[in-house]
Design a binder for these strands. Sequence first.
RNA 1: GGGGCCAUGGGGAAGCUUGGUAUCCUUCCAGGUUUGGGACCUGGCGUCGUCGGUUCAAAUCCGGCUGGCCCCA
Length: 475
Amino acid sequence: MKKTDIGLTNKKKENFSGWYTEVIKKAKLMDYSSVSGGIVILPNAYFVWQKIQDFLNKEFKKIGVKNAYFPSLIPESLLKKEKQHIKGFEPEVAWVTEAGKTRLSERLAIRPTSETIMYDSFSKWIRSYKDLPLKINQWNNVVRWEFKHPIPFLRTREFLWQEGHSVFSSKEEADKEVLEIINLYERVYNELLAIPVLRGKKTENEKFAGADYTLSLEAILPNKKVIQAATSHNLGQNFSKAFDIVFLDKNEKEENAWQTSWGFSTRSLGIMIATHADDKGMIFPPKVAPIQVVIIPIFFEGYKNKILNVAKKVKDKLKEFEVFVDDREDYSAGWKFNEWELKGIPLRIEIGPNEIKNKEVLAVRRDNLKKEKIKISKLNSRVKYLLDDIQKELFKRAKKDFLDSIKRINSFNEIKTKENFVFEVCLCNKISCEKKVNNQGLKVLILSLDKNIFNNNCFVCGEKSSFVAYIGKSY
RNA sequence: GGGGCCAUGGGGAAGCUUGGUAUCCUUCCAGGUUUGGGACCUGGCGUCGUCGGUUCAAAUCCGGCUGGCCCCA
């Protein structure tokens, strides 16, 4: 076979969108459906989504968030109750107008987000301060009919997410929660997906329609475009006024409740793929890999059964990991190596006659293709170490690209006036500064900016501190 | 919002200008020899996104629709 036929035809650095599409198709992460902007999320990608769900559900439980489910159709009258909200979403709402041959008396929106339908219920449920706080989350799909061309995972007209909605009796509690949630989302990116993100606040033009303010995470794609990675909104009393969510406080006084809403979507899968995959194909961070270790028996005449037996034993030793034995006999070993590299499995273990002789296996890591012989007696602990190390290495690599990108974006010199902002990053110690990656990158950015334009007060603590914003080219 | 490109078997391409019933690579299926970086032999499946028009005849020409991609605001 010709060398050019091996692996991907597009290069990550030369043709990002061609490369991205090729990776997700060939690694079997998604398939196109016959609805424009609607994709099929295939099992390998959906596995990652389930890992994210597991993580978030566990954390939600700790802070008293409960899962529930609300209808996907929202009556027009409800959707229009909060003025800023409908103004922001109206252009991209899809409507149901008929059932069978009957025209509906009121058209129904397919939810672009669920504030309105949920808060209609909340107003019935909440009577007293004793009913608060109320924290409800739902895992669902939403439809936002964007007219920009869809990009699998990154911009689709239907996507999966979780949307959390909390109601509090004071502004302070709401302020505290939006920050707490954005920190939680950052942990999903850092700890599970091994992706660095910037944390900050959206500008007035970019904030959620109907919110007082929006905190967000922004990631940077390999093509240097900035992309919103998750958001957490403080809704103030805007919706509680529109939906009449009132409670009696301890002094028997009626008061409007304070609300927040926050979401994390399957766009994160696209950011993960774009960040870690390379010119050989996908690379899964080990913590979310559908298969963490693939075992490839190398068959030789007379050794077949022996090798299969050892492969089985090795698999049993690695019970705590997701392991797959590729014992297909009609594919050559080389073919399998390439296929599993394309699919992004973090660690490959080869077992052949040499290994059997020496009671060891040959391990090859996907991130740098380094090979290493491991004694079978030490297998479990070494595999654990290697998977951890791959996770760390991917994060380290992503951070390096992240900083390079920030320098590049900075050099674009597109930021001239405050009106161009989409996003502000606070350098206040209380929020972002424990992350060295943010510090370093932003220092570079800030040096070349006009400090008179960019100085501001911290949006959380109110102290004088520097804000930085960039537009780059955002998705 | 404005402009451009593309659609041929599971994947990738040629054929289209000048209409004559489709070719190559790969995959897939069956059998056999193989397996340490995409093995080989033999045989086999598969019909031009979709709807309509022109024509004796359409992958090819014309129009609508659907889907995909890119660039600029």
